[in-house]
Design a protein around this nucleic acid. Structure first.
Lengths: 222, 222
DNA sequence: ACAACATACTAACGACCGTCAGTAGAACTG
DNA sequence: CAGTTCTACTGACGGTCGTTAGTATGTTGT
């Protein structure tokens, strides 16, 4: 089962392209590697996966990966960054749009969950493998996450002031909400009905958690 | 700062301990090792931590750990089992006690969160390092977790039937609730006010998520 | 055509890993 | 007392890991 180390497996390549150029892709190689690595990291864990295994998945030898990434940790960092910095910059403007706090938060939640679903493995890796990052890289990721969390807390606080929401501690609610929606990436499968999940969770948050301090009618009893 | 136990000169005393017996603890050694390992696993990740590092923390050499565990994976398995099987057997009977579904679920949530807080690192490891387990061990842990989740779903369904709760999908709500409360172990620190956290989350669940389908009065407008 | 660059390769290094074999000294048991 | 068990030790093995150096080859720019 071990690959013959010293020999060139001429016919073992997935593409024995006789032109000598194995892959015509230009520039997108980094993303391709990161995507393959994220898949492996998600299902086996960062440290279990070797550079040679990642390389094989994209049709290279392990050492060649260092033409695209300076280290294994940088691969992980790129994955984590793509799930914190990028969506933060794309989604948080939704909180600055027009509308009530409730509609703005709903828009953010929908974008958040849909993005998570579209990048499930990357999201899972970004949550799970933080300790494997360099202290500097880890700090950058957690800072970004804290900022995102703070923005959610602020829009909740605005909703409390406007009377739309009823919670004691917007900060505590923000943490609980984000933990709940991020939990999706642990169990999501491709055969789930995304529309239904999104609307369920938006309901849990907007009509549930953020309303739990409000008086309600009890169960029908007559 | 290095311990003097490292080198063993020819005729020197192995331990300066006056009693001559290095450790009077009997039998509790397994738990001591697992606790130390859980601390390391939680903050560095399972694969980053070596047997020699765990051993040093309990005053042994790496190879001596194999007098207590047959493999490194068994250490992880013991930790994970202590956070699924044990609490399931201790807490789930609360769902069979007397009272309404709401009071029974509240009791379970309180016990769950308090147990989580008392074993934060073990809980985190049990969540995060599942892929490092043997397929058989992993299956056992996830089966246990699925059972726990099903019991929560059932009590939610009972509450819906009795009119105490108002949710469309008890199963979906159970998953969301458990993800939310389990998320606590990712950020909990020892200086948090546990009573306040517990009651906040019980409120999020019982008065929030599980009521979100019920009609409510809107924000006060007159 | 020639230089410069990008990308892939082979080969190997040093470090560390989990694990095992063998041993020794205490602690119990009869 | 002898015999068994328990626990910790030393020392080492085979393997894998991330990474580097050096090299070959195809593409691009002038």
């Amino acid at each position: 089962m071990s690959a013959p180390r010293g020999e060139r497996p001429d016919g073992a390549e997935p593409e024995p392209s006789p032109s000598g150029r194995p892959r015509p892709i230009a520039g997108g190689r980094r993303a391709e590697i990161a995507a393959a690595a994220a898949r492996f990291f998600a299902e086996q864990g960062y440290h279990t996966v070797g550079m040679r295994e990642i390389a094989e998945a994209v049709g290279m030898r392990g050492a060649s990966l260092y033409n695209h990434f300076s280290s294994k940790e940088e691969v992980l960092y790129a994955i984590a960054l793509g799930m914190t910095k990028v969506p933060a910059e794309e989604h948080l403007p939704l909180l600055d749009a027009e509308g009530t706090p409730a509609t703005r938060l709903a828009a953010l939640l929908r974008a958040h969950i849909r993005h998570l679903a579209g990048h499930r493995v990357e999201h899972l890796v970004g949550l799970r493998e933080l300790p494997a990052l360099t202290p500097e890289h880890r700090a950058e990721i957690t800072d970004q996450r804290r900022y995102y969390q703070r923005r959610v807390r602020d829009v909740i606080a605005a909703g409390v002031r406007s009377g739309e929401f009823a919670v004691d501690s917007p900060g505590r609610a923000a943490v609980a909400i984000l933990d709940m929606v991020n939990g999706i990436s642990w169990w999501l499968r491709s055969d789930h009905d995304m529309d239904e999940i999104v609307e369920s969770y938006v309901g849990f948050v907007l009509d549930g958690i953020l309303q739990h301090g409000r008086a309600r009618p009890g169960p029908a009893s007559g």
